[in-house]
Simulated scan of single mutants.
Amino acid sequence: MLLFTSYNEPYLFAISFILLIGLLEVISLLCGHLLSGALDAHLEHYDALSEGNIGQVLHYLNIGRLPALVALCLLAGYFGLFGILAQHGWVTFWQTPLNNGLLAPVSLVCAVVAAHYTGNAVAPWLPRDETTAITEDDYIGCMAIITGHAGKSGSPCEGKLVDKFGQSHYLLLEPEEGKEFNKGDKVLIVCRLSATRYLAELNPWPDVL
C-alpha cells in the first residue's frame, strides 16, 4: 500500500490535523491552559452557532455534549480513514486511484455519520467540567431567609439565599406595596427590580417549604 501518494493528500492532511491538535493541546496544557476548554468557552458566546442549519450540524456532531476539538478530531479521523481505505481498495482491484472530487464528499458524509454515532457512545463516559457559578437572574424563583431587620416597599432588607451548589448569597429584598418582611421570614424571590434589589413575597407554601 502506497500511503504517501498524491491521491491520499486530503486524507493525510486530515490525519495531520489530529496530530497537530494533539501537539497544541499538550503545549497549552504545559502552559497551564486547555485548548479544548478555551474553544468551548469561545463558542458559547455565539448564540448564532446554536441556531439554523449551523446549529443542527453542530448538534449532530455532538458539539456541546463533547468538547469541540474531540468532535472535530473524530470527524477528521474518520474522513482520513475512509478516504485512505477507499483509495487503497480501489487501487488494489483496479490499479488506478479514485477521483477525489467524487470520493472526498462521500468520505465526508460517511465521516459525519460515523462521528455522530461515535460521539453518542463516547459522550457519557467523558468527564465534564461543571460550573458552580449562577447569574443574578437565577435567583428568581428561589426561596430566601430574611436576615436583616424589617423591610418594606422602597426600603429593602437583607436576605440570605442558598443555591443548589450550597453557596450562600446575600441580597436586598423588598415586599410588595403595603406588606412587610421581618427577620426570619421565608420569602420567594419574584423578580429583579434593579442591579441590587429584588422583589419578593412571603412564602406562599408554608406547609410545604
Rank of each mutant, 00 (worst) to 15 (best):
residue 127 P to V: 12
residue 75 L to A: 02
residue 39 L to R: 01
residue 109 V to G: 10
residue 139 Y to K: 10
residue 186 K to Y: 10
residue 20 L to H: 06
residue 17 F to L: 07
residue 67 P to S: 08
residue 147 T to W: 00
residue 138 D to E: 15
residue 143 M to H: 14
residue 35 L to R: 06
residue 68 A to N: 07
residue 75 L to K: 00
residue 48 A to P: 00
residue 77 G to H: 12
residue 138 D to P: 01
residue 98 L to K: 01
residue 176 E to N: 08
residue 179 K to P: 01
residue 10 P to V: 03
residue 160 K to P: 00
residue 10 P to Y: 07
residue 88 H to P: 01
residue 181 F to P: 00
residue 184 G to I: 04
residue 27 I to N: 05
residue 69 L to N: 07
residue 34 L to E: 12
residue 84 I to C: 02
residue 53 N to L: 14
residue 28 S to P: 00
residue 25 E to H: 02
residue 104 A to I: 04
residue 105 P to Q: 13
residue 132 T to M: 10
residue 154 G to H: 06
residue 150 A to I: 02
residue 30 L to H: 08
residue 123 A to R: 08
residue 137 D to V: 07
residue 137 D to C: 03
residue 205 W to N: 13
residue 24 L to M: 15
residue 157 C to Y: 02
residue 56 Q to P: 00
residue 113 V to Q: 04
residue 157 C to K: 02
residue 142 C to N: 13
residue 115 A to R: 05
residue 185 D to L: 05
residue 193 L to P: 02
residue 38 A to D: 15
residue 171 L to H: 04
residue 173 L to F: 05
residue 63 I to W: 05
residue 121 A to I: 08
residue 171 L to K: 06
residue 130 E to F: 06
residue 44 E to K: 11
residue 88 H to Q: 15
residue 64 G to I: 09
residue 46 Y to R: 02
residue 141 G to N: 01
residue 208 V to P: 00
residue 94 W to I: 09
residue 169 H to W: 09
residue 93 F to T: 12
residue 132 T to Q: 14
residue 197 R to P: 01
residue 148 G to P: 03
residue 123 A to D: 12
residue 170 Y to V: 08
residue 130 E to G: 02
residue 66 L to D: 10
residue 19 L to A: 15
residue 70 V to Q: 04
residue 179 K to C: 07
residue 89 G to I: 03
residue 185 D to R: 07
residue 29 L to H: 13
residue 15 I to K: 07
residue 110 C to H: 02
residue 1 M to C: 05
residue 123 A to F: 09
residue 10 P to N: 09
residue 47 D to S: 13
residue 93 F to E: 09
residue 2 L to H: 11
residue 157 C to Q: 12
residue 66 L to N: 03
residue 146 I to L: 10
residue 52 G to K: 08
residue 115 A to D: 11
